[in-house]
Amino acid sequence: MTISPLNALLRWVVWAALVFLVVGPIYWVVSASFKETAEIIRPVPTLWPHRVVFENYAYLFTSTKYPRYLLNSLIVAAATMMVTTAITTIAGYAIYRLRVWGADWMSRAILLIYLAPTTLLLVPIYSLLAAVGLVNTLAGLVIVNVAFASPFCVWLLRGFYEAIPISLHEAAEVDGAGPMTIFWRIYLPLLAPGIGTIVLYAFIYSWTEFAFASQLIVTDGLKTLPMGLGALVGSYYINWGLLMAGASLATLPAVLLFAIVGRYFVRGLTSGAVIG
């Protein structure tokens, strides 16, 4: 197909709009985090920092509990990620490959659960954790995050499992491997993109989770980023530079992980097996 000059121009305009929509807001905040406060609140905003300063970041690390929040978030997200990945990968194997009795039923139930209104369960889950003494602990947060991240992960894994030909499983069986050996030596290596996908999802879920974290955690030293930063937003006087440095830094780990496994995640979403 040939493209007329008008179409070519239109194409660039539309693409510019999309790029602007996706990247614009992020750039605006990240660039502002390197500006001096006076420059941030100028009536006519500057497109880039005229003087690049790190004072907002320095203040964040020296005068707030931000490093503590960051560490807590990393601990919770890493634990959520590891537990979720472990339990959903083996469950996916049982449901989608070993086809345990009731597998279809489980698969549907899990789909239904992932539609469940999570925030509406805040109250009873809080009381459950209170009953076993896990309120105000990072472990309690991990337990909740794993429960909410898992259903979607199992669902994502389906496409990846089904993309592995069943004949590989059978060939390995004929070659003398039992179910667990096949899992370790055939499925796990071939499942790497799928695992990348759920690692990302579980991490992001935990990294961004706010509703449960805000109620389950009381002690300041145990708070995670969303709460810590959220508190800065709500304070009487808003220090925008500080806030934007905090937001930019909170974004960084998620974006780094995304840069590594993002394309697998997209492949998982677009494989067609996720929905429909």
Partner: peptide
């Protein structure tokens, strides 16, 4: 299958994509 002392060649070959030829054969 593993206890039956048989070997099978599949229609789609079913070679393990993450192993080289030698590892496929010696698995």
């Amino acid at each position: 299958p593993k206890q039956r002392d048989i070997a099978m060649v599949f229609q789609t070959y079913a070679l393990y994509p993450h192993m080289n030829v030698e590892d496929n054969m010696s698995f």
